[in-house]
Computed example of a mutant assay.
Amino acid sequence: MQLVVARIGRAHGIKGEVTVEVRTDEPELRLGPGAVLATDPAATGPLTIESGRVHSGRLLLRFEGVRDRTGAEALRNTLLIAEVDPAELPEEEDEFYDHQLIDLDVVLADGTEIGRITEISHLPSQDLFIVERPDGSEVMIPFVEEIVTAIDLEEQRAVIDPPPGLIDESEAVVASSRDEEQAGEQADGTPKGEGS
């Protein structure tokens, strides 16, 4: 099974290093020296990680054969893909791989459907579920114990207990009325029917 574990950002310095946007809970395992990763677009890879270090809170990687800024910049926006055994599980009982969580139904404790997890965003402070609502809109739900009360892989669902305002319909109403107000303005920012 293939998993996207990172996206290459801009070049760093002049010796071939690149910044990466990490998309795995286990960067030390998936993005360590010697790791060979497939790429998207495929023509770019495979890439072998030569070294890695953290600089100002960002992971920097250097790949074998990439020695200068030009080569590093050519890799920008490339997705790094690792081969993972589907049966492989994280060491900790309450940890999950992204591929286990993607497509889970998100419901409230009473069974009310909220949506479906389409992406996991790994931020420095916490992970976020990107959840697609039935109407096509998206909501971000922090993957923390206080909010995500249960992950049931057999039932393919995540049970949440959101604080007020996180997914309230009233927010969608406010957003849509704001959009209508903006649509009622001319390109120069003046309400329709006003101006010269």
Rank of each mutant, 00 (worst) to 15 (best):
Val4Ile: 11
Val5Cys: 14
Arg7Pro: 08
Gly13Arg: 14
Ile14Asn: 15
Lys15Leu: 14
Val20Ser: 08
Val22Phe: 14
Val22Arg: 14
Asp25Cys: 04
Arg30Ser: 10
Arg30Gln: 10
Arg30Lys: 11
Leu31Asn: 05
Gly34Ser: 06
Val36Asp: 02
Val36Ser: 00
Thr39Ile: 05
Ala42Tyr: 07
Ala43Thr: 08
Pro46Trp: 03
Glu50Cys: 03
Ser51Asn: 11
Ser51Gly: 11
Gly52Asp: 04
Val54Lys: 11
Ser56Val: 07
Gly57Phe: 08
Leu59Asn: 05
Leu60Ile: 08
Arg62Trp: 07
Phe63Asp: 01
Thr70Gln: 10
Ala72Glu: 04
Ile81Ala: 08
Ala82Thr: 09
Ala82Lys: 12
Pro86Ala: 10
Asp98Thr: 07
His99Gly: 02
Ala109Asn: 09
Glu113Arg: 11
Gly115Met: 02
Arg116Ser: 04
Pro124Val: 03
Pro124Arg: 02
Ser125His: 04
Leu128Ala: 05
Phe129Tyr: 09
Ile130Tyr: 01
Val131Arg: 06
Asp135Lys: 04
Gly136Cys: 02
Gly136Trp: 00
Ser137Tyr: 01
Ile141Arg: 11
Val144Lys: 05
Glu146Arg: 12
Thr149Ser: 13
Thr149His: 05
Ala150Gly: 07
Ala150Gln: 12
Val159Arg: 10
Ile160Phe: 01
Ile160Leu: 02
Leu166Ile: 08
Leu166Thr: 06
Asp168Ile: 04
Glu169Lys: 13
Glu171Ala: 15
Glu171Lys: 14
Val174Leu: 15
Asp179Ala: 15
Gln186Gly: 10
Ala187Trp: 14
Pro191Ser: 13
Pro191Lys: 14
Pro191His: 10
Gly193Leu: 10
Gly195Asp: 08
